[in-house]
């Protein structure tokens, strides 16, 4: 049943510099995670996305990018799904 989801997660995880990826449903619960990412991040990722959406409520949900050292966290909400991707630049 989750084959499509697994396929999508594998595809995201195989992108360059990606170290972890997860997908959350509209309740902020983790649907699936791949790589070095804590599934508990799903709820907080979705909360960040909801807050940022309030900046421009009439526009589509934006892509959020949080920078920290050589790591990046990218959050994107699309309909009922929210994706969180961790990227890390090689040293």
């Amino acid at each position: 049943m989750e084959q499509q989801l697994e396929k999508a997660l594998n595809e995201f995880a195989s992108q360059p510099e990606t170290v972890g990826v997860l997908l959350a449903n509209r309740q902020g619960l983790c649907l699936g995670a791949k790589g070095q990412i804590n599934p508990n991040v799903s709820g907080i990722g979705m909360a960040i996305s909801e807050q940022v959406c309030k900046l421009e409520p009439n526009l589509n949900p934006p892509t959020i990018c949080l920078y920290s050292g050589n790591k990046r966290c990218i959050i994107k909400k699309d309909g009922e799904l929210t994706g969180v991707i961790y990227k890390q630049k090689p040293n």
Binding site: A24, G28, L29, C30, S42
Partner: peptide, 10 residues
Amino acid sequence: EHCNTGHILA
């Protein structure tokens, strides 16, 4: 019903 369950768990 639309509350962020994942956030509560975190």
